[in-house]
């Protein structure tokens, strides 16, 4: 079931293009960096935070790194928005509605209900399409998060500039939501997203599709039957057929992914430890 196994047909299909994977890598690196350099502030009174801040070269250096990673994440957001605008300019309305769109539709709700019924053993697994409801939630959570954390972060980054038109209380609000949203993002990505994407038994230890861009045909048929059927009927399968990833690619994908997951889990461990104290 993991991305490493081609299954019966032996054929691989492309799911993410190079740009998708580049954006995810940029997102992953900058988000991990932001978490690493930001969390010590939120838990400044814990001993691990002081040690981490010291290891990062002190809060001033950590602050500089935080801004470097913030630039990376903002760049990621801008590139994504640029691509969305580009597609709309080419009248690719499919990204606004339908199976290729991240916009929720009624099927997502029925999929959710069906999925829960399947959890409880009261029904079959829903026939998911290209984007499942939890993937859409991930997407919009990050989209919203980038706006909120990015926006408030910029306010805190350039307070003198923003103070030319924002009132004083806006900085209090920015500081509060920057921290709370950060906790939400760290907690969500490092537990829920990791579980949904990588750590749940069917995927464990790593779903490498976001790194290699391809997945075995059988896996697509099993996990996203609706998309598979559509592709089969339209002849899209042949168009998406791809060479299996090399062993080295698979190995690196697992290693990089596992490293990111591990780092994230350590950070979320610290966070939970600090929150419980």
């Amino acid at each position: 079931m993991s991305g490493a196994r081609p299954g019966a047909s032996g054929r691989y299909l492309r799911r993410f293009d190079a740009f998708d994977r580049f954006l995810h890598a940029l997102l992953m690196v900058s988000f991990l960096g932001l978490s690493l350099t930001g969390l010590p502030l939120l838990f400044a009174e814990d001993a691990w935070a002081a040690r981490l801040a010291r290891a990062l070269g002190g809060p001033h250096t950590a602050g500089l790194l935080h801004r470097v990673f913030a630039f990376g994440l903002l760049l990621c957001f801008a590139l994504h928005l640029g691509r969305v605008v580009g597609r709309l300019a080419r009248r690719d309305w499919g990204i606004l509605w339908g199976p290729h769109s991240m916009v929720p539709r009624p099927k997502d709700f029925t999929d959710f209900v069906g999925h829960v019924r399947w959890f409880l053993g009261r029904g079959p697994r829903p026939a998911f399409d290209r984007w499942t409801y939890w993937e859409k939630f991930d997407y919009w959570a990050v989209f919203w998060g980038m706006g909120i954390i990015g926006g408030s972060g910029l306010v805190l980054w350039f307070p003198e500039l923003f103070a030319t038109f924002l009132p004083g209380w806006a900085f209090n609000v920015a500081l509060l939501i920057h921290g709370e949203e950060a906790l939400l993002a760290v907690g969500f990505i490092f537990t829920i997203h990791f579980f949904n994407g990588h750590l749940r038994p069917e995927k464990f230890p790593m779903d490498t599709v976001i790194f290699t861009g391809v997945l075995p045909e059988d896996e697509l048929r099993h996990e996203r039957p609706m998309e598979y059927e559509r592709l089969r009927e339209s002849g899209g399968l042949e168009l998406l057929a791809a060479a299996p990833p090399s062993r080295a690619t698979r190995k690196w994908s697992v290693m990089i992914g596992a490293l990111a997951v591990l780092l994230g889990l350590v950070l979320v461990g610290f966070t939970i430890y600090a929150a419980l104290n």
């Binding site: 307070p159 900085f171 209090n172």
Partner: peptide, 13 residues
């Protein structure tokens, strides 16, 4: 410390 602070800036609590 914040050389260009103005009244809004100082309105931060």
């Amino acid at each position: 410390c914040h050389a260009r602070a103005n009244a809004n800036f100082a309105g931060y609590d």
